[in-house]
Amino acid sequence: MNDQRDDLAPDPAAALAIIEQQRRQAGLTRVSNAVLFAVWGLAWLVGYGALWLSGRHGEVSPASALVFGACVLVGLVATFWHVTRRMRGIVGSGPRTGAMFAGAWVVGYAAQGMTIGGLARAGASDDVVQLVANASGALVVGLLFLAGGMMWRSPGMYGLGAWMCLVAGAAALVGLPGSYLVMALAGGGGMLVASGLEAVLRRGADRA
């Protein structure tokens, strides 16, 4: 059944409006940096915030470590849900590149875990292990965002990547317990700011 109206030509202004509206619709098939930065910004703010609150006065409590773990888990679930929902039914080099990017995160964090394990085994103190864990965690994020920013020509992601590399350095330099605060506020907060900037400035021009 073909509606008669389907064949009418819209006037130029209406046509441009339709084109813009459909461009935004097509944006629903791309992963949103604004969403992912917000998810992880919040996860870092709450997770590292909990570690700082308990680690301020001495040893980090098991409860705060659980909160941190829960934040990471929620972040992973939310990321997976968002990406699969947006990319459903899309095939081509876009999804393939995205899959390689996801793989890079797995490899990066696996390497981070092995590095920390190696340092602990070599006799590094708990404090040193914690500092390296924080710094290397932020460094993995920073380098991968620099790479992603280059790949998708996203100044926002690239800038956030550079920032997270600095956060990594700062998190090590300030020592414990300030390191957790740096991760929470500069790391988590930095991602939240980047999310806001992406949402406001990019407005539907998500990564291709």
Partner: peptide
């Protein structure tokens, strides 16, 4: 320029060359 076909083309245009969309997903977008 026909309105409905413009909507279809305008939805497909933002995709990078080499990427394609499934019929059901396109139907939902439109």
């Amino acid at each position: 320029h026909a309105q409905a076909r413009l909507r279809v083309v305008a939805t497909l245009a933002p995709f990078a060359p080499g990427d394609s969309i499934s019929f059901p997903r396109l139907q939902k977008l439109l």
